[in-house]
Amino acid sequence: MVELTNEELNSLNRVILTRYGIDFTSYETGSFKRRVARAISVFNLESVHSLWAKLLKERDFIYPFIDELTVGLTAMFRDPILWISLKKVLRTYHEKDPIHIWHAGCSTGEEVFTMGILLDELNLASQAKALATDLNQGAVKAAREGKYRKQVMDEYIQNFREYNSVKRFESYYTPHGDTVCFNQSLIRHVEFQNHNLIMDKMEQKFDIIFCRNVMIYFDTATKLRLLQQFYDCLNPGGYFIIGFYDALVPLIDEKKFEFFDLNAKIFRKI
């Protein structure tokens, strides 16, 4: 795999920012180098220079390139302890209509469908209004479709059983060949959009914001800026949910957020 120098990475970032207006300079350097190196391999390119040239010559190449850079790792009912705790959160909103939810960095939609199942179980789907966003256009398209490979279903089923040992997970999807299709009724309340967390503003207000295992890729200054953005976007008493690997707890301002459930990584706006 190609090894990038800091100078090569900085040059590439300048090309992308100047030509396409997309800023990757806030990404943690080591992680971003690995992702660019992987993309060079995936697209059968020889070097950083050949990638740089392709980005300059082929304007549409930026889309598959970004999709490769921002591939997310997620799963249905990932970290069951979170979803068990989140039921307590949702029960506090039984009298609220609508319940505004933001899935920031929704990836391929596993989290969005998981939330849809919780809302369905608690009879809150008709009260919910969610926004699911991601920079990766391919991921947003996949999230809308809700089609996942059968080979990952064993993991998803096991996660669901830890969350709910009574109900059958199979009732939420239909098998089709080597894929399964989740019921579109689970995301009837969701609007999907492409959105760049670093560069695009968010003017809406929300009761619940998810941003799980996304900020792990950003430097400390960007993490702090995004934490402020999420704080500003939350309604008073709203909930902010991070990933188990984001390593954000030391950066959380306890004057702005209280720990609702530290084990589940759920915080509440003060």
Rank of each mutant, 00 (worst) to 15 (best):
M1W: 12
E3K: 15
N6R: 10
E7P: 11
S11Q: 15
N13H: 04
V15Y: 04
V15E: 11
I16R: 12
R19A: 04
Y20T: 02
G21L: 07
I22T: 08
Y27H: 06
E28Q: 04
G30F: 03
R35E: 00
I40E: 01
S41N: 13
S41F: 10
V42D: 10
E46N: 05
H49V: 00
H49N: 03
H49K: 07
S50N: 13
W52D: 11
W52H: 12
L55C: 08
E58G: 00
I62H: 06
F65S: 08
F65E: 10
L69N: 12
L73A: 04
A75T: 02
M76Y: 15
D79C: 08
P80G: 01
I81W: 13
W83Q: 01
I84E: 12
I84M: 06
S85M: 00
L86W: 08
K88A: 01
V89Y: 14
R91L: 12
R91D: 14
Y93V: 01
H94E: 14
H94V: 06
K96N: 10
K96L: 08
I99P: 03
H103D: 08
S107K: 02
G109E: 09
E111A: 02
V112F: 09
M115T: 15
L124F: 07
Q127I: 02
Q127P: 08
K129D: 12
L131M: 04
A132G: 12
A132N: 12
D134K: 00
G138W: 01
A143M: 11
K147W: 04
K147T: 09
K150Y: 08
Q151Y: 13
E155S: 00
E155H: 01
Y156D: 00
I157Y: 14
I157H: 15
Q158F: 05
N159S: 07
F160T: 07
F160S: 05
R161H: 06
K167D: 11
Y173G: 06
H176W: 04
G177S: 10
V180H: 07
I187S: 05
H189Q: 14
E191F: 11
E191Y: 14
N196A: 04
L197E: 10
M202Y: 03
D207Q: 06
D207G: 01
I208G: 10
I209S: 09
F210A: 01
C211E: 09
R212A: 06
R212F: 13
V214P: 14
T222H: 03
K223E: 07
L226Y: 09
L227I: 07
D232F: 01
L234I: 11
G237W: 08
Y239P: 09
I241T: 10
I241A: 10
I242M: 15
G243Y: 05
F244I: 14
D246E: 13
L248G: 06
V249I: 15
L251F: 15
K256L: 07
K256E: 04
N263L: 03
K269W: 02
K269Y: 08
I270E: 04
